[in-house]
Design a protein around this nucleic acid. Sequence first.
DNA 1: AAGTTGGTTAGCCATGTGGCTAAGTAATCT
DNA 2: AGATTACTTAGCCACATGGCTAACCAACTT
Lengths: 109, 109
Amino acid sequence: MANQLDSVFSAMADPTRRAVIERLLDGPASVSDLHATHDMALPSFLKHIRKLEDAGLVTSQKTGRTRMIHIEAAPMRAAEDWLSRQRKLWEGRLDRLQALAETLERNPQ
Amino acid sequence: MANQLDSVFSAMADPTRRAVIERLLDGPASVSDLHATHDMALPSFLKHIRKLEDAGLVTSQKTGRTRMIHIEAAPMRAAEDWLSRQRKLWEGRLDRLQALAETLERNPQ
DNA sequence: AAGTTGGTTAGCCATGTGGCTAAGTAATCT
DNA sequence: AGATTACTTAGCCACATGGCTAACCAACTT
């Protein structure tokens, strides 16, 4: 689990990879199609794809000479859940601080 | 903005740093207190703190020889929002696929 | 003043990262 | 069969990363 969060957050830490994820949410795409909108050498781009695949965020299937890339939504969900939990803890704490401030306002001591 | 997401996701990509964030949601803590629960050399640990600070996830204040670390929730929120938006796109797409499947089920063509 | 505590700086290490070019293989098209 | 297309492998680069030790400075305690 900790390893999954590591690899998912790390994969999301690059704008090229985030753009790839955004594109794939519209549907599977070939490496060439994905690459076409990025101004970098193909081997470099493939490294990004590889990182997304290693993080479990995408899967790929080679058919003939074409490799199609498919999104996998669950790992991203794990990252969102972690962040969401922290936000809830934070908001809960703010609520308690607010309540304490109001109490002190009524009962200055 | 893209730089903020880069640095926040990158900061979250390490278990030590996530643990620090989780602890700080309970309230500010000194470097020493934070460090006490991690089995690594202090200079190494301070590098992690530095990375969180550079990502805007924490701020620090030195008083005398003690440095207190405080959480900053907004950058984490930005990361959560990005992930949340992708999930919504994904869920919307699943809904459309489901509706299509149901249509085809009723009108096999 | 001496000792202790809390943090800082500097340098090291092996590995990883985001790019590059060059060369190669396999699939497809003409 | 030759040319083109879609990837793949290999090696390079400068810099970053997650740790280490050693030495140091400042604040605090005794």
